[in-house]
Amino acid sequence: MKKKGITFNYCSESEAKEFLKKNNNYFRVSAYRKMYDHYPSGENKGKYRDLDFQYLRELSTIDMHLRFLIIKMCLDIEHYLKIDLLAKAESVNDDGYESIDKFFSDSKYQYIKKNIYYKRNATYCGDLINYCFEFDDDNETISNYSKCRLWDFLECITFGDFLKFYEYYHKEHNIENKYEKLIPSIKSLRNACAHNNCILSQLRKSDCMPNKQISNFISGIYGISPSVRRLRLKSRVIYEIVCLIYVYKELTPETIKKHRFRELNSFVNGRMVKNKQYFENQQIIKSSYSFFKKIIDNI
């Protein structure tokens, strides 16, 4: 790290060693260095500019807290998407059996039978799976699903498989799916957090083309100019987080929403800025934070 220009002015080398032994590892902590520039020339050419180990340590801690909040929001969204689907099933007089039969008759979704087969011994849903399905062990798939009703099925499948079914169900019954273009981004973010990826290390990636719903949502927030909106939403991390916030705002009941947004507000205006002096010279971090804060303050 010292050879790369990382300093130890705010955290001693011995403290850094202890942190890397007991709290994190070099690979993960160093991932956040991507947000820092190198000296382009001179005796320090190629070394990081204004990067102390403590800054990396602080970013890894902020990222951890953010991932925990995101996971909670994603779990809430999964739950209320299922509630939403069941309400729509009632509106089209679905008896709970026919839709499953049609879904499994489609060749595109045969792999989901295998996914359920592999979950048949799961601790928390194995009993329900074994009640609803009969299995063909030779082909590692389902042989009979006549006992499975829609509400059973939703408890037996993964989040990814549920999203496939959610999309299918809307098309099958010609129901508007207003989250269709946003759900893939939420799934991507959920998977990143569930696998404990360092999401803030990707802030500089700007390969995203934002959906019109999200652009319109941000355009209604005071203090965010069109140029800032376009620039910040190019960041895939920021775009996915904004998709999560937007769908959460639209989908969840008022009491749940208020509770979770209070958590977000406390985090953004509290823990996130606890050591803001570390990032005074880092524009990408400051501008991303400012954008995020304006959204949270608005909601």
Rank of each mutant, 00 (worst) to 15 (best):
K171E: 08
N265L: 05
Y39T: 00
Q213S: 12
L251H: 05
R262C: 13
S266Y: 06
R190P: 01
N144L: 07
I77Q: 01
E58T: 12
M64A: 12
D138A: 09
V92K: 06
F292D: 02
G42P: 06
F104V: 10
G270S: 08
F165K: 04
E15P: 05
T255F: 14
N115T: 03
L85A: 03
L233Y: 00
F153R: 00
F279R: 07
A192F: 01
I296S: 07
S185N: 11
P226C: 10
A16I: 13
C11G: 10
Y131R: 05
G270A: 09
K72Y: 12
Y109F: 10
Y26Q: 15
S287M: 10
I199L: 05
L189C: 08
K187H: 00
E90V: 13
Q213V: 09
L66G: 04
Y222F: 10
I157T: 02
E15S: 11
V237R: 02
M1C: 14
V92F: 04
R149E: 12
L251W: 03
S290V: 13
K72R: 13
V242C: 01
S219I: 14
I62V: 14
E18A: 11
F165P: 02
I186V: 07
N115C: 00
G42V: 05
Y179R: 10
F104A: 10
K286V: 12
S188Y: 01
I285W: 02
I296N: 05
N25P: 07
N275K: 10
V92S: 09
D106A: 11
F8N: 13
N121H: 12
L203R: 03
T255G: 09
R149I: 11
Y131F: 09
R120L: 01
Y10K: 15
K178S: 12
L128K: 04
P210Y: 07
I214K: 03
L66V: 07
L59W: 03
N196I: 11
S225I: 08
Y10H: 15
Y109M: 07
R57D: 11
R229T: 05
N174E: 13
G220M: 11
N25G: 09
I183Q: 00
L150D: 04
K294I: 04
S235K: 02
C148V: 06
C148L: 05
R260K: 13
I186E: 00
T252W: 02
S185M: 08
K205N: 15
A16W: 06
N121A: 10
K234R: 12
E15L: 10
D50K: 09
L59V: 04
D136S: 04
F159V: 01
F159T: 02
S219G: 13
Y166Q: 03
S60V: 10
S188A: 08
D136L: 04
G223F: 04
I100L: 07
N197I: 02
K147T: 11
G270V: 10
Y55T: 15
F19Y: 09
R120H: 07
D94I: 06
D137Q: 08
Q110P: 00
I186M: 04
V92C: 10
F104I: 12
Y145V: 06
S287V: 14
Q283I: 11
T158C: 00
I284G: 03
F162E: 00
F103H: 08
I183W: 01
K164N: 06
D137M: 07
S107C: 07
N121Q: 08
S290M: 12
Q283A: 12
Y222E: 13
K113R: 06
N25E: 14
E176Q: 15
Y97P: 12
Y222K: 14
